[in-house]
Design a protein around this nucleic acid. Structure first.
Lengths: 130, 130
DNA sequence: TATTGTATACGAAACACTTCGTATTTAAGC
DNA sequence: GCTTAAATACGAAGTGTTTCGTATACAATA
């Protein structure tokens, strides 16, 4: 199911907020969007996008109150993995190692993170012995 | 310069072909696009996109002959890194290690690739001693 | 030079996402 | 019950990309 989901840029920004904050009203999301970003987005714009996301089942909502409360219906790591798979194909033609090289090479990764990644590689190597 | 370049999906597919094959005519690119993919794309569609890419300086062209020959004006690894940076922000909020986890965890990476990545990490750790 | 095949140029339609104005609904307070 | 403030619903315009029909240019050749 999750693999075919393709949230747009705007939708992803809203999902990020809901993943971090938990269930929110449209106004809360809109205010956080405007607080985080440089540009300012109208309330009805945020509302519209969230309504569309609701129709796509990216969000659920509690409308027992006048003010609806929206929740993410998709898991952060699922969406990330799906997007990553697509990105890997589109930009790297599937070469995960090339992507990893750029990732580690260009972006300052903390020593802790490097150690963590190395530990994961060790684990993978043990699980799949040559 | 390169950091601000944002090729679209369609443009990226054309760049992939030119990166792999070197300079090509519109017809060659169009045939390769249709050979690679499931969907079929009209010749003038490919032409139009490549003309737009030319205007954006993503491509250069040799029009000394009636049949123009196009070349990529941007380097593969530059574009990949730029796209990766954006993707990392949009989908992972900048957490490179989380992305790396998904990358190594979900996509089968060969033992050789794993060793290569581990070697890179070792090098990074030596260059930046705690 | 007229014909034919192929190339480029141009413009408009199709499509998807974003944006917001305005209408409508709703709940609370007077 | 009326008024007001705030929420949702709706519709349409704005924006960027893709798609392609059609016009035009060009070169080879009959």
């Amino acid at each position: 199911m999750t693999e075919n989901i393709q949230p747009t840029q705007g939708e992803l920004e809203i999902l990020q907020i809901l993943w971090k904050k938990g269930p929110c009203t449209v106004r809360e999301v809109n205010e956080l969007l405007n607080a985080t970003q440089d540009k300012s987005i109208g309330y009805t714009t945020t509302l519209k996008i969230m309504q569309i996301m609701f129709e796509k089942n990216l969000l659920s909502r509690n409308d027992s109150q006048r003010t609806h409360v929206y929740s993410a219906e998709v898991r952060e790591s699922n969406i990330q993995s799906a997007l990553l798979g697509r990105f890997l194909d589109a930009a790297y033609k599937g070469s995960a190692s090339k992507l990893a090289m750029h990732l580690l090479g260009n972006h300052k990764t903390t020593p802790d993170e490097l150690a963590e990644i190395k530990a994961l590689i060790d684990k993978l190597e043990k699980n799949k012995p040559a």
